[in-house]
Write a protein that binds this DNA or RNA. Structure first.
Lengths: 207, 207
DNA sequence: TGTCAAAGTTAGCGTCTCTTACATATGTAA
DNA sequence: TTACATATGTAAGAGACGCTAACTTTGACA
């Protein structure tokens, strides 16, 4: 046996072709967008034949799902990491979550659009579950900051308001032509501003 | 000459095939999404051969651009109509704009995603201009409500905050699986709430 | 060492796509 | 009526793509 743990590719038996294909797929979607992604391209980038993926994935959609799930897992861990440096129950944690959300959209626009720029019927249960995991983080933090005993209606309302704003800010910031319409404002300042305004207990309409 | 103004299709000389193709394209994108749209499908729906579009459009992309521009024009007129029933300078006008924005996304999700769910390099000048037209409406109204003498930095900031929120609310509301995470809150209530909070002159950060 | 499953490759089928070249029908205007 | 520009149809090219079947290499293990 030669070296199996180095990244040298001998011939057959790639070592972890599945991971390599997922990474190639991710790169290509980031570079050219989902509508110009093809399995053939991923194979060329990974340096394997066009039939190879079908030993690891059921079909093209299955490859994309794998990439999305991997990206969502990364996002979740990044959020937790960014949040936990601030004291529990502090508004800084919320702001860190928002900053991370916008940052993720800017770092991985292809993945972000893959998750949200579509409307092809209902999502797969796995993806929906991963999304719920992420949203749970937000709701729990909002509950703590507002001093609510769990996920109350008020928590749900404020969380959704925050999500709407941060999500919209992410989408617009991703596109330079839209971002400059806001005068190239620092998203962090906007997040600070909006977080404060959304979470405060003032309302014109009853909760 | 037979009847030219009725919608009866004799054979040759459709009357306004260009408009018919635009409408077919619009319908198909709404029904199946942009990634499953094909020129052939549009031809089948319009009842013409697959070569017919190329007498009216340069290529597939040109057809889509025509559909987007038509949709943006519709959106602009709807916004103006929804707004002008309220007194000038009133906050109700802003809320009407927001409601219309969300409503448009719900009525024409395909067109909405076509405008925003992409990131294929810079947009065409025509589309960007149409987008600026629409955004100008918002900025002018925000300036009036805030009593600012034109498009000041403050107006730009508040407009962008509003846009971010309304845009995010639209994107999330379009997808039932996301909308229900907000507890199926009435978007109108959220708009009223957020409009008030965003436009008020209180801030934690200096403008 | 021999066997076998796993993980590649080669070759190709079938389909759909956008687009063009050329033929044909139609309306208009002299 | 005739000529001509415009609008559509016919037919086909050229290529990409997803996916499968069948073959080959490899490494692990009895």
């Amino acid at each position: 046996m030669t070296d199996t743990m180095t990244s040298e590719k001998t011939t057959y038996h790639h070592g972890d072709l599945r991971a390599a294909l997922v990474e190639a797929t991710r790169q290509l979607i980031e570079e050219k967008g989902i509508d110009h992604f093809s399995v053939s391209d991923a194979c060329r980038r990974a340096g394997v034949s066009t039939a190879a993926p079908y030993k690891h994935f059921k079909n093209k959609g299955d490859m994309i799902v794998a990439v999305v799930l991997q990206s969502m897992d990364r996002h979740k861990h990044e959020m937790l990491e960014a949040m936990t440096v601030y004291p529990e129950g502090s508004i800084e944690r919320i702001r860190a979550l928002g900053q991370n959300y916008v940052g993720f959209a800017l770092r991985e626009p292809g993945m972000f659009l893959l998750r949200f720029g579509h409307n092809d019927g209902p999502q797969l249960p796995e993806i929906e579950e991963a999304g719920q995991d992420i949203y749970d983080i937000v709701q729990n933090e909002v509950a703590k900051v507002l001093g609510e005993p769990g996920i109350t209606d008020k928590v749900r309302q404020r969380s959704f308001m925050l999500w709407s704003f941060v999500h919209g800010l992410s989408m617009l910031s991703m596109n330079p032509e839209f971002a400059e319409k806001g005068g190239n404002l620092d998203p962090d300042l906007l997040l600070q501003e909006i977080g404060w305004r959304v979470l405060r207990d003032e309302a014109t309409v009853p909760l």
